[in-house]
């Protein structure tokens, strides 16, 4: 039983590291997260009981560690973040007129019908870069929503916001992502 974690380490550590690096862009942070993942796995091995695939289980632990990392980062840069959030809130508000209707410039790019974009690697890359540009707290909301199967209530509790604040963050983040795709994605 004991050596099983070591076996998993040899088998999956590179995949886990690659994923952590991809999500944090830091070698040191990625190594730390992989280490924490395996130490949690050692502690929680009894809970695992071969119920799922070990790789799936390890990735679920890692994803939670990645979110913890984003949360800590958002906390430590709170002042800067507030400034950025304020700026981005102004930006997203400026998409609408005083009646809360979309301002239309006529130069909008239509990409909504292009379902094949989901398989387009350039589009994915653009979206990935756009997510990285979001303020830490907004990115935390987006990553928590799409990376894990956490419920809205859980995410709100962890982020210490109420549900309507949370939806507003998701809403503004998606408006920024739309804008960022409009600006940066070349057909």
């Amino acid at each position: 039983m004991k050596a099983i974690i070591e076996e998993w380490f040899h088998e999956y550590s590179d995949d886990l590291y690659g994923w952590a690096y991809h999500k944090t862009s830091s070698k040191e942070v990625a190594e730390d997260l992989v280490q924490e993942t395996f130490l949690s796995a050692v502690k929680g091995l009894k809970k695992f009981q071969n119920k799922s695939n070990p790789k799936t289980w390890l990735f679920a632990i890692l994803n939670n560690k990645i979110i913890d990392h984003y949360r800590k980062k958002a906390k430590s840069a709170a002042v800067n973040n507030e400034r950025l959030e304020h700026k981005y809130t102004n930006t997203t508000d400026s998409f609408f007129d005083s009646n809360q209707n979309w301002k239309v410039s006529g130069s909008e790019v239509a990409w909504e019908e292009e379902v094949h974009l989901l398989d387009n690697s350039e589009f994915k890359k653009t979206l990935d870069q756009c997510v990285d540009k979001l303020p830490d707290n907004w990115r935390l909301a987006v990553v928590s929503k799409y990376l894990t199967d956490k419920t809205t209530d859980q995410i709100c509790q962890e982020m210490n916001v109420n549900v309507s604040n949370y939806w507003q963050i998701v809403h503004r983040s998606k408006l920024m992502l739309k804008k960022c795709i409009d600006n940066n994605w070349k057909h």
Binding site: E114, V115, L118, F123, L127, K145, I181
Partner: peptide, 12 residues
């Protein structure tokens, strides 16, 4: 677009 972003984010 919002629905497309949703699906793209889940995949990403």
């Amino acid at each position: 677009q919002s629905a497309l972003i949703d699906r793209a984010l889940s995949r990403l």
